[in-house]
Design a protein around this nucleic acid. Structure first.
Lengths: 153, 153
DNA sequence: TGCAACTAAGTTGTGCGCAACTCAATCGCA
DNA sequence: TGCGATTGAGTTGCGCACAACTTAGTTGCA
């Protein structure tokens, strides 16, 4: 199955492969975004906002810092996004008493309630991918390794 | 190796898997973007601008329409991007004589010349991914299938 | 103890991605 | 042939991503 190390891949093929991988990634990410956009429209959430809500639904109140670490987003992205979630009445922010620099994000009742309506979303997306569970696992694993390696560099 | 169809995957696992795949994709796409940003900085290109240049380097003058089809981008994204490439002196736009609605994008000499300096970029990215050629092929193939399936829906 | 280094969140500015729209050119068909 | 529908490019507006910066609070150590 594996390419024999003694059969070198031509240089030009490598360049094409790189372009194709990067481009596929870009395209796939946007294709997912588009399907999620449709699925989340009735909830009034964008895809990144949904990711933040997932973190809060799963882990409970969290400081901005750790939401950012989980989602690989910095305050420049999260601050305005959280402001919009707050304006929508889904979360509410409070300065941490023990560290005044830190702001804890907490779900409101409306934010908790939205969880029910969000439950059917992932299944719809899964079905739309057309991949088997095993393939999705392979994909997740490859993507995880790529991201890890790229973050090193 | 494959999961037996007779061993159903619990529902909650499916939901987690979906989240993980979508999130990994999102994260990987941004990780690639970040590495490309560094590699392209000295060329004065962003990653999407680089993708447009790749199309022009490979296919020669192209109308905005077909650049958009190749890259899965609409005029709302391409028009300002091309305006910036034009301002940078890399491309130049001309109305098509046979269809006055269409605008053909053509590389300037500076745009052609940039190709040389861009050649070493993909190899650097490939190395940074830490994946084998086979794994990259698998990744490309899975991503292509996902995008195709999602675009159906 | 005091002050420099660090840290968390927020702000500003730029570019991408996309929906919704405008405008002009072209097409198609009654 | 004329006129409504379609098409290609561009514009507007909003949200995300990120670099670079500011501000306020905390930490550590000389």
């Amino acid at each position: 199955m594996a390419t024999l190390p003694t059969l070198p891949v031509p240089d030009s093929d490598l360049l094409r492969l790189d372009h194709q991988v990067c481009f596929s990634l870009h395209a796939a990410s946007r294709a997912f975004g588009s399907v999620y956009r449709d699925a989340l429209k009735e909830l009034g959430l964008t895809y990144p906002q949904y990711l933040v809500m997932l973190v809060l639904w799963e882990h409970g109140p969290e400081p901005v810092k750790s939401i950012g670490e989980r989602l690989r987003l910095d305050s420049g992205t999260l601050s305005p996004l959280l402001k919009r979630l707050e304006a929508a009445g889904l979360v509410h922010r409070e300065r941490s008493p023990e560290d005044e620099r830190s702001v804890t994000i907490r779900l409101t009742e409306a934010g908790e309630a939205l969880r029910e309506r969000a439950l059917p979303v992932p299944r719809r997306i899964m079905a739309a991918t057309g991949l088997t569970v095993d393939e999705l696992r392979t994909l997740r694993s490859l993507l995880g390794r790529v991201t890890g390696a790229l973050d090193e560099a």
